[in-house]
Design a protein around this nucleic acid. Structure first.
Lengths: 220, 220
DNA sequence: CCCGATACTGAATATAATGCCACTGCTGAA
DNA sequence: TTCAGCAGTGGCATTATATTCAGTATCGGG
């Protein structure tokens, strides 16, 4: 049982046409200027279109090419997907992952509570996403309820590391300890019991390694 | 001795009520999460209001107090006015402060160990610098040796907040408790003793308020 | 020559969202 | 007591917006 994860990342981005780049640039500018994304009508007006549908079609194209997300039905529901390579500065936008539904992959959009720009040099190895921690089972490791655990996506972990693991249907943060055929997931709080996993019988998927903690709430 | 620092903040902003602060925080969160500001209905739903007008009234109040701009007629036309003006781009570069020499100011260049780019939306109120924590006196608050404490520069603090204080020659991180003429600086670790400061005799300077924690080292 | 992609015009429609009015209840200051 | 500010409920007219449908035109393959 190789403690392996599936892995999969999004693919290449189709090139934009000249016009589509213009639209994208315009959306950036208008969003920056006003604090919120433009409507179809505003795009059309700025571009000189006499039909809002021209803007609509462009948005569809941009969404299909993966540079935009459009929230259906929501007014101004445009979000520019800032792919890491695109930016001038070398900062990443990390997703904040909340409650993870059983069976579905970690980074599914439905789990994303928000995004934060993080200096990649802050964590080593590189953090791939932030997981909102629930419960106090890692209290004595200084990881409290509501904290954001910076997670490095990796299917393998060494004994002693803090891992994000999937045991059965549950996603949990614990310290990993290997013991031959079995693996222990140790809480850092005497009020909680260790989880014993026999790899010959139970499934264990390592989702990643904890590489940092960010606490920003009122839990402070 | 009025617990005051030189610090000083910019233009007078009327204080927000508890509820209004909640609304503001919510708007920040929703905007961060979705990429665009919420509608009145979304605010009402998130807050549990049964009337969208409750949200409308709060927005009016927040606008009147100068923390918001509302674009009349535009859907989702909410812009949070960033006080302090400091924010030029979308992210700031915060200094990491190490050992602070007695008597010299916090942000003196000699104390700067490095700088990290941080999303200003990560902490509220705004973090002004990061302080490398020494010692385990705040262990039970989840602040460990080597952690970076995000500090909001402020000469005033409320009872119960975690503060960076200068007592005599020492800079220390503790939880503040006011007791009439005296102030207690409470550790969050039974192995350490509280510090009692009599304001009529001893000097106490609040350097700032702890607004967040970042842990990135191998302490994890 | 037809097809699909790009790039639009123009109009129609359902609904999302703002903005306003009337009203309740509380609190603290004048 | 009265009054202003705060915190809501509920309803409603008017816009604002998204989204779809029906076209026109150009371009580069296959």
């Amino acid at each position: 049982m190789p403690l392996l994860n599936e892995g999969t990342v999004s693919g290449a981005m189709e090139p934009l046409t000249e016009r589509q780049s213009e639209i994208l640039r315009l959306i950036r500018e208008l969003t920056e200027a006003s604090g919120f994304p433009p409507t179809r009508a505003e795009i059309a007006r700025s571009m000189g279109f006499r039909s809002v549908n021209a803007a609509e079609q462009h948005l569809r194209a941009l969404e299909k090419k993966g540079v935009l997300d459009i929230s259906s039905g929501a007014s101004r529901g445009i979000r520019i997907r800032d792919r890491s390579g695109a930016r001038l500065g070398r900062l990443m936008e990390l997703a904040v992952i909340g409650r993870v539904a059983a069976g579905s992959p970690m980074l599914a959009e439905e789990h994303v509570q928000g995004r934060f720009q993080i200096d990649p040099n802050l964590f080593a190895p590189r953090a791939d996403y932030l997981l909102r921690v629930r419960g106090m089972s890692m209290r004595d490791a200084g990881i409290l309820e509501g904290d954001l655990l910076a997670v490095h996506r990796s299917g393998e972990a060494r004994s002693g590391q803090i891992v994000v693991a999937r045991v059965g249907d549950e996603v949990t943060v614990k310290r990993l300890r290997r013991r031959g055929h079995s693996v222990q997931l140790l809480p850092e709080n005497p009020d909680f019991a260790p989880i014993e996993v026999d790899l010959r019988r139970d499934s264990l998927v390592i989702e990643g390694i904890g590489v940092g903690v960010i606490r920003n709430g009122k839990s402070l």
